[in-house]
C-alpha cells in the first residue's frame, strides 16, 4: 500500500469516525438543540474528511473540485436547515407557540 493510499484511507476512516460520533450524539443527547449541535458539526467535518480522502484516491483535479463542490453544497444546506430546526425549537421552548 503506497503512502497516498494510506493517507486516503486515514482520511476516510477519520471521516467515518466523525459520522459515528455525530450519529451517537443524535441518538443520545437529551434535547433538540444539543442534538443539532452534535449532528451538524460532526457531519460537516466528517463529510469534508471523506471528500478529502476520495479526492486523494481519485488523483484528478476535476474530481477533487467536484467533491469540494459537493461538500460546499451540503454545508450550505445543512447550515440553513439546522438554523430552521433550531429556530423552531427555540420558539417552541419559549412558549411562543407554532
Amino acid at each position: 500500500m503506497s503512502l497516498v493510499e494510506l493517507a486516503a484511507a486515514l482520511f476516510l476512516l477519520c471521516g467515518c469516525a466523525f459520522f459515528l460520533a455525530g450519529t451517537l450524539g443524535l441518538l443520545r443527547f437529551p434535547d433538540t438543540l444539543s442534538r443539532l449541535h452534535a449532528l451538524t458539526k460532526a457531519d460537516n467535518v466528517g463529510l469534508l474528511l471523506i471528500c478529502i480522502g476520495l479526492a486523494i484516491q481519485s488523483g484528478s483535479l476535476r474530481a477533487s473540485l467536484q467533491l469540494g463542490l459537493v461538500w460546499l453544497l451540503a454545508l450550505t444546506a445543512s447550515t440553513v436547515s439546522a438554523h430552521l430546526v433550531a429556530r423552531r425549537a427555540h420558539r417552541q421552548s419559549n412558549g411562543a407557540g407554532r
Binding site: L73, T76, A77, T79, V80, H83, L84, R87
Partner: peptide, 14 residues
C-alpha cells in the same frame, strides 16, 4: 428568514 433567502439565492440558480 434571512438565511433562507440567502440559500434560495444560491441554490435556485444552481
Amino acid at each position: 428568514v434571512p438565511l433562507l433567502d440567502a440559500l434560495l439565492a444560491a441554490v435556485v440558480p444552481g
